[in-house]
Nucleic acid binder design. Structure first.
Length: 299
DNA sequence: GCCCAGGAGTGTG
DNA sequence: CACACTCATGGG
């Protein structure tokens, strides 16, 4: 029987150091922006990046990465995923002009926005509607388990559009997707790879408009996909937690449009980072309820 | 059992 | 524009 840290002992794995600073794996991979990473008992994190299973382990001020050998660009793959080029000092300097934000920001300098695969991000946040994070995680894993390709140690890739093509809507309902199954089936039949490719060349404003045309994609999902899938740092997704944070800290209430315009003016080009800081802080205030970030190892 | 969730779609005032 | 209602379900 394979133990779950078997990969860590496998001498055939390639090991390299990632010098991305600041970087806090617990904050970045456990804060709810991405759904497939798991924290292992030894404190490292394991998850799939594209078709590559990656294990990341804090090592002093850097991070040690373990991957299967053979893929020479794994370093770039992971660096891109963790947005190594984001200048956190600059981002926090700009956002820190907001004194309300500045207060809690310093404690989470290692929280980085991730750059997910566009398709995986789009589907994940389509499923995320009206569900909590553990459940989103469960739906994504069920989909991967049924329709993804095996990578290693029972971990599967996130299924591409063509792989989901084998599933009927009824099959998708059986994955526990509920009413989301219909949206996913429709999305799968609407968005092909060329369309996704086109979207990568658009600016945020145009991209957002195009995403809103997709079935099951409203303003919140469009902003999450813009931010975490297409790397548009000016996007500012607003869910129930963000409504609470904006109300509590800034006295701002109202429609999505109104709140988004407030955030755009207040936080500008790095609104996405501001959103993650506020989101993290707001959820931290309510430790009861769903799993809380880093210290829970599921499954 | 009860409550809530990284909402969207549709209809109405 | 703004609301109100419905949608289906698992995890806390």
């Amino acid at each position: 029987m394979a133990t779950r840290d078997e990969q860590n002992r496998d001498v055939s794995l390639r090991k390299f150091s990632l010098d991305i600073r600041p970087l806090d794996l617990d904050l970045t991979l456990g804060c709810g922006q991405t759904f497939r990473w798991r924290k292992l008992p030894d404190g490292s994190w394991r998850g799939p990046v594209s078709d590559q299973l990656v294990t990341l382990k804090p090592n002093g001020k850097t991070v040690q990465a373990l991957v299967k050998p053979g893929r020479r660009d794994a370093d770039d793959l992971v660096s891109n995923y963790l947005r190594a080029d984001d200048d956190i000092d600059r981002i926090q300097r700009v956002l820190g002009r907001d004194k309300i934000l500045a207060r809690g920001m310093r404690d989470v300098r290692g929280l980085r926005i991730v750059k997910m695969d566009e398709w995986e991000c789009l589907v994940s946040y389509l499923l995320a509607t009206f569900a909590n994070i553990p459940r989103i995680s469960g739906m994504v894993e069920t989909l991967a388990g049924k329709y993804g390709k095996d990578i290693a140690d029972g971990i599967k890739t996130f299924p591409r559009r063509a792989q989901l093509g084998k599933a009927s809507e009824r099959d998708l309902v059986r994955c526990g997707l509920g009413y989301r199954a219909g949206y996913l089936a429709e999305l799968r039949d609407t968005v092909d790879d060329r369309r996704l490719e086109d979207l990568t060349r658009m600016d945020y404003r145009e991209l957002r408009g195009e995403l809103l045309e997709l079935p099951g994609v409203g303003e919140k999902v469009a902003d999450c996909v813009s931010l975490f899938g297409f790397g548009k740092l000016e996007a500012f997704p607003i869910d129930v937690w963000m409504e609470r944070a904006l109300s509590r800290l800034y006295g701002q209430k109202g429609s999505y449009r109104r709140l988004r315009e407030f955030a755009g003016e207040r936080f500008g080009q790095y609104a996405g980072y501001a959103q993650e800081y506020l989101y993290y802080n707001e959820r931290l205030r309510f430790p009861r309820g769903e799993c809380c970030f880093s210290d829970k190892t599921r499954r």
